[in-house]
Design a protein around this nucleic acid. Structure first.
Lengths: 216, 216
DNA sequence: TACTTGACAAAACAAGTGTTCGGAAGCTAT
DNA sequence: ATAGCTTCCGAACACTTGTTTTGTCAAGTA
């Protein structure tokens, strides 16, 4: 069986379920799906729901009516006001970021992210880290802040990135600029001085796309 | 018929429904309610659900299975993971904060606040402002950030407050310290210098309890 | 070619689930 | 007490809904 990807029909069904729950607050029945998507038989729906369940996109509650639910995503997520990302660990100046691939996402604590910070539609591949220490203070990020990162290894000029400086053995959050023959890492705080370094001394580990700070 | 108030049994049923939806993401069936609440007949459940609907506490979707839903209360609010506060305007260095009393809260845009930033239980009297300009940069707050404030006119030492400096006609966000005969306003960024001023030149306008930053 | 597999179709089946109805018990006001 | 109302009971009923079975068909594969 093909894994990882949904067929067009499965994607339609998945989208229909999400919209149905969003609009009505309850799950659709198999016959709802069949009728509204013009599918010829309930067995086809059932078949594709099984595939979706194996893909982990939905959960079918055996035997009970309207028992489809979306795992990981609570009803709150469907409101389009928030999303969730895994909190994968801590970021400090002196160590590289953890590899998101190597962490059990399903066991990680989940952080709620308001749509005002990152729209739920753009939350794919995003994870959160708790900041320890004040080494990121020139990026306007304080001890205890939660930063939201999207994994990427390249960056556009001006983007705020998590950069691993190999020689210095340090992670830093700076705005990234590629200048002829060198990299400029510019603090977000304009009163601070930029770092200049060689391109092969820099590994981009992710892009900063949001910050949550609690002072309570 | 008695209106306005639920009987004990109706309150039990209502609570059961809310918890069921919260826990499972789908509505309970009448027989779920009957069984778990030890009610003798489904007709009793149905009867009391009708009463609850007339009281406006629930909505029954005619005929369809597991068709009970809770109006008004969005699924997101049931999750206790988020709260909402009104976005009352903009904060700049050069003008005092708007008076929350004078703003029509009900018409204000609502900002979703994750429980990780401010627990919903502590959200009373809190409002949000959008930051314009970089004058708050020594408080680690950038242009475009959303700050969460709780209205208060006094502060404990060390709290981050929005302070109105009367002579300078400026609002600033600093850590507040009362020292003998004067006020010290300390930037959050330790490389910056504090401001010293007379107590009667300072009006505390609120306490900063959270920051949301979107870099998307 | 023969075999397997994914995807679909049609229909029948079985279980889940809301509704209804006659009757009884308790309560309140006249 | 009588009437009227709310609440409850038990059971039967009918509709809703998930599941299963039996085939078909096309695409890949040894």
């Amino acid at each position: 069986m093909r894994r990882r990807e949904m067929s067009d029909r499965q994607a339609d069904i998945y989208e229909y379920i999400v919209n149905f729950i969003k609009a009505r607050g309850i799950s659709p029945s198999i016959r709802d799906i069949q009728h509204d998507l013009n599918i010829s038989s309930t067995s086809v729906v059932s078949y594709n729901l099984d595939v979706l369940e194996k893909l982990g996109k939905i959960v079918r509650n055996d035997k009970i009516s309207r028992g489809i639910s979306i795992p990981g995503l609570s009803p709150a997520l469907l409101s389009q006001e928030i999303g969730r990302v895994p909190l994968l660990g801590t970021i400090t100046a002196g160590s590289p970021l953890p590899d998101p691939e190597e962490i059990d996402h399903s066991r990680a604590e989940q952080i709620v992210v308001p749509a005002d910070v990152v729209p739920p539609t753009r939350l794919d591949g995003v994870y959160a880290l708790k900041v320890r220490g004040q080494s990121m203070i020139d990026a306007l990020i304080d001890d205890g802040d939660i930063v939201l990162l999207r994994r990427q290894e390249t960056a556009e000029n001006g983007q705020m990135v998590a950069a691993w400086l190999i020689d210095e053995n340090a992670v830093t959050l700076k705005k990234f600029y590629r200048e002829d023959g060198r990299i400029r890492l510019q603090p977000a705080n304009s009163t601070m001085q930029p770092i200049y370094t060689a391109p092969n001394n820099v590994r981009i580990q992710g892009r900063v796309i949001g910050v949550l700070r609690s002072l309570v």
